[in-house]
């Protein structure tokens, strides 16, 4: 792939990655009351993974693990309020004052969103894995059936 042999692309992606991660973190926390949230943050993270994969900086792995872990976390957080008699997907909100940041309001919806992030990133990795796992130049071998999508 041309992207993986170009030093400009590699350097650019490497430099942009921390910035993109910051944007993802911002979107993740902003999502409580403003546009953003777990899905948007997951997409930005997924874009980082996709860029780094194309630039040859990392290999996409652990798709199934991320997907399932995210799904289980989100599902259990959705179900948790039911145990204490609250409606499905209800959340507990915590409000504290932290010295440097001032008043902080956070809910268990954050954990749910974290699950969503994992699902989205896992999905992106699974797609990358499925689309371009093997280099095209290799001699064609019989397709291997995989255990995950």
């Amino acid at each position: 792939m041309i992207a993986s042999t170009s030093p400009i692309v590699r350097l650019g992606v490497r430099a942009a990655s921390p910035l993109a991660l910051t944007v993802a973190a911002f979107l993740f926390f902003a999502g409580h009351n403003r546009p953003g949230g777990g899905f948007a943050a997951g997409l930005v993270l997924g874009a980082v993974v996709a860029l780094r994969t194309m630039a040859g900086l990392q290999r996409p792995t652990h798709a199934t693990g991320l997907l399932t872990a995210g799904g289980i976390v989100a599902g259990l957080v959705a179900l948790a309020p039911v145990v204490v008699g609250s409606p499905l997907l209800d959340q507990a909100v915590v409000e504290t004052t932290v010295p440097a940041l001032g008043k902080i309001k956070a809910g268990t919806a954050l954990v749910f969103d974290a699950g969503v992030v994992l699902v989205v990133v896992g999905m992106v990795i699974a797609v990358l894995d499925g689309l371009g796992a093997e280099p095209l130049s290799q001699p064609s071998s019989p397709p291997v059936r995989r255990g995950h999508p």
Binding site: T68, A69, G71, G75, A78, V82, L88
Partner: peptide, 21 residues
């Protein structure tokens, strides 16, 4: 009764994830 409805809807999805794992 609302707990039953909640488990019926979310349960299969959580179980699917456990199954994949």
């Amino acid at each position: 009764m609302s707990a039953v409805v909640a488990v019926i809807v979310v349960g299969p999805l959580v179980a699917a994830m456990c199954g994949l794992l």
